[in-house]
Simulated scan of single mutants.
Amino acid sequence: MSAIDTLVEQHRACDARFADCETAARAQDWALALSHFQAFRREMEAHFAVEEDALFPAFEAASGSSMGPTRIMRMEHQDMRDLLEDMDEALAAQHLQAFLGLNDTLLILMQQHNMKEENVLYPMCAQALPEMAELIAEGAQP
């Protein structure tokens, strides 16, 4: 499996957990929705950490710039973190409509973000970083 495949697989795993959470929330099974949400959030944060702590700094060093696509990805990660916090609060309050509105916003942001990473940034990283697979593996270590 290539380094890009590993990162794309992480995206898909997060997408599946996200869908599980939405399904449980729509059924108003709040305990299950919260359980899925917490797992989803942990997986998202772990994925962000691989990128922000390992991949992005290496790419910035290789490209000589921290003002390019990695800057945008970090900003989008923060936007997603903010939405996750709001979603957590809506789940805790068992406020279905608020949760679903935030859920839809996050879904759109994740889809756009993942498309940029998968089609633009990851290929750029693969070209600039022969050690990309090792960076991802090391970044995934606790």
Rank of each mutant, 00 (worst) to 15 (best):
S2H: 05
S2W: 00
S2E: 09
S2N: 12
S2D: 10
A3H: 03
T6Y: 05
T6I: 12
V8R: 14
E9C: 05
Q10L: 08
H11K: 09
A13G: 02
D15Y: 04
D15Q: 13
D20L: 08
C21P: 06
E22N: 04
E22A: 15
T23N: 04
T23G: 05
R26V: 10
A27R: 14
A31K: 06
S35V: 05
H36D: 08
F37E: 06
R41L: 08
R41S: 12
A46T: 10
A46S: 13
A46D: 14
H47I: 05
A49Q: 07
D53P: 01
F56D: 01
A58E: 04
F59T: 00
E60S: 07
G64F: 03
S65K: 05
S66Q: 09
S66P: 00
M67K: 14
G68R: 14
G68K: 06
P69I: 14
P69K: 15
R71E: 07
M73T: 07
R74W: 01
M75C: 14
R81H: 09
D82E: 13
L83M: 08
L84V: 02
M87K: 06
D88W: 10
A92M: 05
A92F: 03
Q94C: 12
H95I: 01
H95G: 07
Q97P: 06
Q97G: 03
A98V: 06
G101Q: 05
L102F: 11
N103T: 00
N103P: 03
N103K: 11
T105E: 13
L106A: 15
I108K: 11
I108G: 11
L109K: 14
M110P: 04
Q111N: 12
H113P: 07
N114W: 04
K116M: 06
E117G: 14
L121Q: 03
L121W: 03
A128G: 00
L129F: 08
E131G: 03
E131P: 00
E131I: 09
A133D: 11
A133P: 00
A133Q: 10
E134L: 09
L135P: 04
I136C: 03
I136N: 01
I136L: 13
E138K: 15
E138C: 02
G139A: 08
A140L: 02
